[in-house]
Amino acid sequence: MKAAAFEYLKPQDVPGAVKALAGSAGDAKPLGGGQSLGPMLNLRLARPKLLVDVSRLEAMRTIEDKGAFWRIGGAVTHSAIEDANLAGCTVMSDVARNIAYRTIRNRGTIGGSLAHADPAADWPLALPALAATIVIAGPAGERSVPAGKFMKGAFATELAEDELVVAVEVPKLSPGARWGYWKFCRKTGEFPEASAAMLMDPERKLARLWVGALDGAPQSLDALAADIAMRGTQAVSETSVSAALDLAVPGQEPVSRRLHVTAVRRAVQKGFN
């Protein structure tokens, strides 16, 4: 189980990385921690001609307090987030702590995870719920996309072949905010079969409820979120969650539906406990 041959390039800076990606006509992949790409390479499921190592680009390795939000570089590892105590964003540590295993978290990066866009991954669910913004660098410079618009489907994102996730910007939670995150894994560290995230931030009038680990991208349950904002946990019942999922995730088979109903209810419950 050895990877097919590829070339390896370590650019000096973000523009260098973008240029390398742009110059190889879709046959290059950026390499972050390689914790998802590595297995796919060894299994020869992925066979890029060129790997562009962005894991050590200084511009992507910092965590900065920007006042209303934290800017976390795309090459920051999950374990760095786990160990950081981000004022107003400690929930980021909680999410990070439950990604896979520590050895994976030591290498895997937040930008890499987003770009890989596995429907069952944590960041593609947590960041939309936190109303985060994804900062993308490409040949024309930087652009920002709301996290909820970033992932387009299974392994499909907003990124063009010559673009990179350089940072995510996560707004700080107000002191009275409620955050609930729940995922169901068959065993510790494995990909979940259902997941959900809720943010209720009265000060910012933000009500977010997202469901993940679907066949495609995570989905938002906006109406139910708004209802929870008004009525708290009273808004959440088997019926109301089922109805919300009927709209957002139609056609689920009964067992998956059961798991996602449970995920949503428990995420909300956790948020209010």
Binding site: P39, L43, R186, K187, T188, G189, E190, F191
Partner: peptide, 14 residues
């Protein structure tokens, strides 16, 4: 199942 992500082996918490 062709990987240990498909074929689950019990770990310390299982």
């Amino acid at each position: 199942a062709s990987t240990l992500a498909d074929y689950l082996l019990p770990g310390p918490t299982e």
